[in-house]
Design a protein around this nucleic acid. Sequence first.
DNA 1: TTGCAAATGTTATAATGTTGCAAATTCTTC
DNA 2: GAAGAATTTGCAACATTATAACATTTGCAA
Lengths: 163, 163
Amino acid sequence: MSTSALPYRPHNHDACVAQALADARAICQQQNARLTPTRERVLELIWQSHKPLGAYDVLAVLTEDGHNAAPPTVYRALDFLQQHGLVHRIASLNAFVGCTHAGKHHNGMFLICRSCSNVLELTAPEVAQAVSEAASAEAFQPEDVMIEVAGLCPACRVDAPHD
Amino acid sequence: MSTSALPYRPHNHDACVAQALADARAICQQQNARLTPTRERVLELIWQSHKPLGAYDVLAVLTEDGHNAAPPTVYRALDFLQQHGLVHRIASLNAFVGCTHAGKHHNGMFLICRSCSNVLELTAPEVAQAVSEAASAEAFQPEDVMIEVAGLCPACRVDAPHD
DNA sequence: TTGCAAATGTTATAATGTTGCAAATTCTTC
DNA sequence: GAAGAATTTGCAACATTATAACATTTGCAA
């Protein structure tokens, strides 16, 4: 059914990031894509938490790094990372999160907590199936499916059950 | 299963708009909400087609109308219309479409043609159900579900089947 | 080591969306 | 119908997000 319960489940996030970076290197090598220092740094920043990060947030950190970066630097890196399935853009937030299913071409479903901002990416075959059938019923040919669910994650439900 | 096949099915769009405006008036009256001239005009503009319209597109037409409008005018009207379920915002396009299921509180599913830009709003109970179950499996409490499917509508599939 | 393609730097600008406050309008209550 | 409250609008400035265009550099291959 669902896959991973990060970030709602406690986990060693440093290892989480390290894994993501290692995966990214492997994927890029395999695809003959160049994970340059800037791109890798941006990926690392995106992975600093499971909360989506805006392009200009990334830019600010690069600037702190001493990197003389401008918006296109960040947007290009993000485009690259998206194209290689390493990050996702969350349209409802204009922000980016690390992909927890890197490598496979997929359209995740995102559970976005409105309280703590953490985002959980799921692959839910039943949902994909239902969407596909609904589109077919209209003779529509789906190419890109975006599912973003805003609400309360388990932890925040407990903290504030009566919102 | 699915409801209406507009805009893919040929239809009398003037009647379509007239109906939408009539519905809007009824809904606002029922909810004690004020469908002021500006709000009504914005709704009418949004309904000029089934293609999503950007806030600044609306603004441009208002200006042509002779209405001395600024961005807040448009955004406020759009907020109002959204709150009363009369229009939807398509996050992946930063644009707005008329709601074809006005009145009921709902989270539609949108089929967005990348070729002709028309958007079809569906209510697909199976999808809603599957999403809800996937969220439950993570103990996530959904509040707002956004499903946007980009692809090719039936008409554009015929015109360009081999994209 | 030259030459090409990919990646980056740089400047400017476009597109989208918000804040804050004042003025006008509408609604309510007396 | 007038006073006061609440909603709506006007308006100016500004904040945020994203892209265009073109020069420069870097990495790689012939």
